[in-house]
């Protein structure tokens, strides 16, 4: 019973983080901040949800598979975020603050 409650708590908080990251994806001012928001969704929320599901299913084959998924996600999604940002930097996109500073300097 306690396991059930903990698992549901984990899943719910995972959902909360997922929603946060979705909001961030739309509301944040520039590309890099949005990648950051998406990163939350990929790592924290996915991890919480999967942990919750693992507790829910108990010690079975499904749990092991879920663990593999978690491992894969934690391994790949930071790398892919990294490469997306790298590509963006490479193609000349600059963070919002840098841009802002530049415009400020011009107006000064």
């Amino acid at each position: 019973m306690l396991v059930q409650i903990i698992s549901w708590l984990l899943i719910l908080s995972g959902i909360f983080f997922a929603v946060t990251s979705a909001v961030g994806l739309f509301r944040l001012p520039d590309f890099f901040a949005r990648v950051h928001a998406a990163g939350i969704g990929d790592t924290v929320s996915a991890a919480l949800i999967i942990l919750g599901l693992m507790l829910n299913s108990g010690f079975t084959l499904i749990s092991i598979k879920l663990f593999y998924i978690l491992f894969l996600l934690w391994f790949t999604s930071p790398i892919s975020s990294h490469s997306v940002v790298k590509a963006a930097r490479h193609s000349g996109l600059e963070p919002f603050l840098v841009e802002k500073e530049k415009t400020n300097r011009k107006t000064d």
Binding site: F75, I79, H82, K86
Partner: peptide, 12 residues
């Protein structure tokens, strides 16, 4: 590619 990508890929 840099170290992060190369090491990540060679693991994957």
């Amino acid at each position: 590619s840099g170290p992060i990508l190369t090491i990540g890929a060679s693991w994957m």
